[in-house]
């Protein structure tokens, strides 16, 4: 496994408490993500290109495969989400997950 290096610009994690991190596995690579932001921005910061358009959950362009694990949405997206998929622009990762890009 090759860890994907990531420079976090997020300042929302409280210094006194440890932010909750989850491991996102993408094929042979993995990265750690927090629950503070949707998955898409964290993948992008790690240099992973994901197709996107609206970034608001209605166009379905950023739909990717969720092979294992749990994500939640703060509000239900307008786009149709197929079983076994997630919408990266608004999905909050809630456990270690395995994903696949197309």
């Amino acid at each position: 496994m090759i860890p994907i290096s990531m420079t976090s610009t997020s300042n929302s994690a409280d210094k006194d408490t440890n932010p909750v991190l989850h491991k996102v596995t993408l094929g042979e690579r993995f990265l750690m993500v927090s629950e503070d932001e949707p998955l898409l921005v964290q993948l992008e910061r790690a240099g992973i290109t994901v197709e996107y358009q609206c970034r608001e959950g209605y166009c379905s362009s950023c739909s990717i495969k969720l092979l294992k694990g749990t994500v939640v949405y703060l509000s239900e997206p307008l786009a149709w989400i197929h079983d076994g998929h997630l919408l990266a622009c608004c999905a909050i990762v809630k456990s270690d997950i395995d994903i696949a890009l197309y």
Partner: peptide, 17 residues
């Protein structure tokens, strides 16, 4: 226009699915 069309295509995707 593209913003509107992205919403419209979601509409037809919902109907088809």
């Amino acid at each position: 226009i593209a913003r509107d069309e992205a919403l419209h295509l979601t509409g037809t995707q919902h109907m088809l699915n």
